[in-house]
Design a protein around this nucleic acid. Structure first.
Length: 739
DNA sequence: TAGCCCGGCGTTTTT
DNA sequence: CGCCGGGCTA
């Protein structure tokens, strides 16, 4: 058994797997077999006779959890499936559910997502008569979330703000306080609460803490660089007795600090656990040496990092190339052209599929030009992550009905569906009713019978009553009926589906399709899940938001943000919009912490590539309808594409001046004057950096020396099989070409 | 009550 | 340039 578990591991991996006792930190560089180590380590523990029930592995995403579960089961069929592998949030939800009675909590609590949170914040701001202009809803919702990530109650926030003389903070604390009250009244918890309340429960109930410490003797944490303070404390509490805690992460891939992730958790692990063993996984199995050296070169500019250097035994092939474009459309077209060339190239043995290509960018808005270019170039593509399934309005509507059926006191859901579809209950009616409800300390639902008393007019009162009856009729099914039955009844009896059918537009048809998909997902839940209740369903969908894109992305190129790229890999990667102001974005260049995170983002993007890496930038770009000029990102220079004449430095200085004088909106008229400069001094320093310029065309301008490092150039055959290198061919896009 | 218009604003988003 | 939300008017 042991041989099976260790024979496919390198020395560091084996060291990590075999170290089962005491604190262990594994620095797992990109592509170094991290998941392999975690799963093997768990399997190894089980092979030693450790009960699977005493192993807890936490991750951040359901996808990662699922993958891990599967691989453990594959390694140790049978008992492997009994190890507890889940996300932080899912674990805490289970914990709170199981221990609800002990910590005086309604076990049927709902989970609010960020949209719900914002709705509550909005209500709070209104109720407290706070200036909406100065206190932006999403900013406040974010601040509250960050406070919870830091385990701070509204009282903590208030005290802190007062101490600092921070009026803004004081007001946010007031909003936070009311916000929390509203959540409690609705028996709802946001994501932050799940962790925070679990931590509080463990801190306040020693017998609970003791029980869980005893239960989970071995704890593993994946993506440790992304843990926030609350999660850190949670792990520290649980591991407090046996101290068999193994954390895996890569400080160079920490890109979520703006969401509360604290990079110090990984940097300071050895301080927290002085006797901790540390293992570095540095052998990369994914990328070519050129890609790795480029990525290393970039990330080594960061100060706040644990020194490490990825290396590989992979053959040295392919290239890292800079693509320079004149505007964002040109950038997209150049990328599309490159992809087409590579796809139809026989020089690469026709081996690439569209799905071997990925385009990464800093902001979602950048996807559009690529979509246009790819459509024109007939490149099938999929945009990842724009709007997730459960974030679609029609899905949220149906879910809101289900939430309301589950808990009629859920004001957020009530207000969402009260007039969807239209029932003639307008804004003013709801507002009046809500005010009345607040006055009487009731939920809106509870105040419905008093609508007349509240001052509503006849029409709305009637509509309100029939709505209440509708919900009551649904509620009857709560105990006996399946969730599927309830959902089906909701969409028909509420006339939701009917209204969409009447609308009969392309959009409404898509919505109907989505709702049907939701119904089949609900059906699937009914057959698969052990807890088939409505409450169980709602908990599950609140925590599992997976857009199972595996099928959807088949045979298609992938477009996504750099953030979403983490954890994935592709043969060929284009990192686009590498310009000062876009990547690094905004003002981040003027703040070391933020700049380092931008740099890590580039590092993450680069290390996704197996074979070819393209760094793309454009001198000109339309942003918000205005044309702006950008300097090439400093990360291009850091990647080894040096500019010897210091022209780039000069330009950056100029860009800096512009930023100062124009409030970071460097607007320069398009078609403008002599500002254009040929970055001809981008000469090649490839011997040192092992980087090749592909050719003048891909670079945009001819380097001054006119010397172009040779790269595998391509022909574009129509009938791939029958064409030899050197044959003159004609292509619909590229015309006549010869190798 | 609902539809229209205008103004403001515009990283990233595992749960 | 587009989207979304709030306010105004029919």
């Amino acid at each position: 058994m042991k041989e099976i578990l260790t024979k496919n591991l390198n020395l560091s991996q084996m060291e990590a797997v075999l170290c089962t006792e005491g604190p262990l930190i594994i620095f797992a560089g990109a592509g170094t077999g991290k998941t392999r180590v975690i799963t093997h380590r768990i399997a190894y523990l089980l092979s030693l006779g450790v009960a699977p029930q005493s192993v807890l592995a936490v991750t951040f995403t359901n996808k990662a959890a699922l993958e891990m579960k599967k691989r453990i089961s594959d390694l140790i069929p049978g008992i492997g499936a009994n190890a507890w592998v889940s996300t932080f949030h899912s674990f805490c939800a289970h914990f709170l559910h199981a221990e609800a009675s002990r910590i005086s909590l309604n076990p049927d609590f709902l989970i609010y997502d960020f949209t719900d949170q914002k709705n509550v914040v909005k209500d709070c701001i209104k109720e407290l008569n706070i200036d909406e202009k100065r206190f932006k809803i999403s900013t406040i919702a974010d601040k509250i979330s960050r406070a919870k990530d830091d385990l701070k109650f509204s009282s903590d926030m208030a005290a802190e703000a007062e101490y600092m003389g921070d009026f803004f903070g004081t007001t946010v604390a007031k909003i936070y306080e009311l916000y929390q009250k509203k959540l409690e009244r609705a028996d709802a918890m946001d994501f932050g609460d799940l962790i925070m309340r679990t931590v509080s429960a463990l801190q306040q109930h020693s017998e609970l803490l003791e029980r869980y410490r005893e239960k989970y003797k071995y704890i593993m944490v994946d993506e440790y660089q992304d843990t926030n303070h609350a999660q850190y404390i949670f792990i520290k509490l649980l591991a407090g007795k046996y101290r068999n805690v193994c954390v895996v992460g890569d400080d160079d891939q920490s890109v979520y600090s703006w969401r509360g992730a604290d990079i110090n958790n990984i940097l300071d692990f050895e301080k927290d656990y002085p006797n901790a063993k540390s293992v570095k996984l540095e052998q990369n199995y994914r990328s070519t040496p050129k890609i790795l050296s480029t990525a290393n070169q970039v990330v080594k500019h960061n100060n706040a990092r644990i020194s490490k250097r990825l290396w590989t035994q992979n053959p040295d092939s392919g290239s890292v190339t800079v693509l320079k474009a004149v505007n964002e459309n040109d950038e997209a077209l150049k990328v599309a052209k490159k992809i087409t060339e590579l796809i139809y190239s026989s020089a690469y043995g026709n081996k690439y599929k569209f799905s071997d290509f990925a385009v990464f960018y800093r902001t979602n808005a950048q996807s559009r030009t690529f979509e246009d270019a790819f459509r024109v170039s007939r490149i099938p593509y999929t945009v990842v992550g724009t709007l997730r399934f459960y974030d679609r309005a029609e899905i949220k509507d149906v879910i809101a009905y289900l939430k309301l059926i589950h808990n009629p006191n859920d004001n957020v859901s009530f207000k969402r569906v009260i007039n969807i579809p239209r029932r003639g209950i307008g804004k003013t009616s709801i507002e009046t009713l809500e005010k009345f409800a607040q006055l009487k300390n009731m939920s809106i639902w509870q105040s419905v019978p008093f609508a007349r008393e509240a001052g509503l007019t006849k029409g709305p009162v009637k509509a309100l009553n029939s709505f209440a009856q509708l919900i009551k009729d649904f509620s009857v099914l709560k105990d006996g009926g399946s969730v599927k039955l309830i959902a089906e009844k909701v969409i028909t009896d509420s006339r939701y589906l009917k209204e969409l059918e009447i609308e009969n537009t392309l959009e409404s048809k898509i919505k109907i399709g989505n709702i049907q998909e939701l119904i089949s997902a609900v059906d699937d839940f009914g057959t698969r899940s052990s807890d088939k209740s409505l409450a169980g369903y709602l908990t599950q969908i609140a925590l599992i938001n997976d857009t199972d894109s595996s099928d959807e992305s088949k045979g298609k190129a992938t477009l996504m943000t750099l953030h979403l790229a983490k954890g994935l890999e592709f043969d060929n990667v284009f990192i686009c919009g590498l310009e000062e102001g876009l990547l690094p974005i905004g003002e981040s260049a003027f703040n070391d912490k933020e700049l380092e995170e931008e740099r890590r983002l580039v590092y993450v993007g680069m290390t996704r590539a197996r074979k070819l890496l393209y760094l793309c930038w454009s001198t000109e770009r339309r942003v918000y309808g205005k044309t702006i000029w950008n300097m090439p990102s400093r990360f291009i220079a850091e990647a080894g594409f040096k500019d010897e004449s210091a022209e780039m430095e000069q330009n950056r200085e100029q860009s800096f001046q512009n930023k100062l004088s124009q409030g970071f909106n460097r607007t320069i008229q398009s078609g403008g004057s002599g500002q254009r400069q040929n970055f001809q001094s981008f000469n090649k320093k490839s011997s040192q950096a092992e980087i090749l310029y592909t050719n003048a065309d891909s670079y945009g301008y001819m380097p001054s020396g006119g010397e172009i490092t040779k790269d595998e150039r391509l022909i574009i055959p129509l009938k791939i099989e029958s064409v030899q290198i050197g044959t003159v061919v004609s292509h619909p896009v590229f015309g006549r070409r010869q190798n």
